[in-house]
Amino acid sequence: MTATDLINAYLDIWNERDAASREALMKTVLTDDALYSDPDYACLRGHAELSEAIGRAQVNFGDLRFALGEVIGVHHDRALFTWRLGEAATGHDVVEFDGDRIRSVVGFFG
């Protein structure tokens, strides 16, 4: 799986409305102890905490879906990319890979 494939799979997690399906995706995309931080969340650890936060955030999203903007750069075990949430929001994320899964995500809003 390429870095772009893994990033798209990560965004699929954010777009998945069914909690059980979202958690199944997490097992293939994120390490068990994955870390997530953005301006709203200081440091979520693991699938359960992130899935709960995604579920709460989706209430505000309506029908909006995340899409990959551009993979700006990939080196060693990290990537920087842009994303958009419909026409409502944009941002940048830095992900750290651990083999074929993501170990951490640090997000920034547009």
Results as ranks from 00 to 15, higher is better:
Y10G: 11
R103Y: 03
D18S: 06
V95I: 08
M1G: 14
L50V: 06
H47W: 08
E52Y: 04
D63L: 10
K27M: 07
A79C: 12
G86H: 04
D38L: 07
T90N: 12
R56T: 11
E16W: 02
G91Y: 06
A3E: 11
P39S: 06
S21D: 12
T2F: 11
V94T: 13
A9K: 04
F108C: 04
D98E: 15
L85P: 10
T90P: 13
V71H: 05
D12E: 10
Y36S: 00
N15A: 02
T31E: 04
A89W: 06
G91I: 04
G69P: 15
A42T: 14
S51H: 07
Y36W: 03
E16F: 02
E52K: 06
S21G: 07
D18W: 03
F108N: 01
G62L: 05
G46C: 13
Q58T: 05
V95L: 03
T4L: 14
I102R: 02
F81Y: 14
L64E: 13
L25P: 11
H75Y: 10
G107W: 12
T2L: 13
W14C: 00
I54R: 01
G46K: 07
E96M: 11
A9Q: 09
A57N: 11
Y41V: 00
V106H: 09
D38S: 07
A57R: 08
D100S: 13
G110P: 15
D18C: 08
E96H: 07
L25A: 02
E70A: 09
A9Y: 02
A89I: 03
T28H: 10
M1R: 09
A20H: 10
D12R: 01
E52F: 05
I102S: 00
S51C: 12
V29K: 00
C43M: 12
L50M: 14
Q58G: 15
S21L: 08
L25F: 01
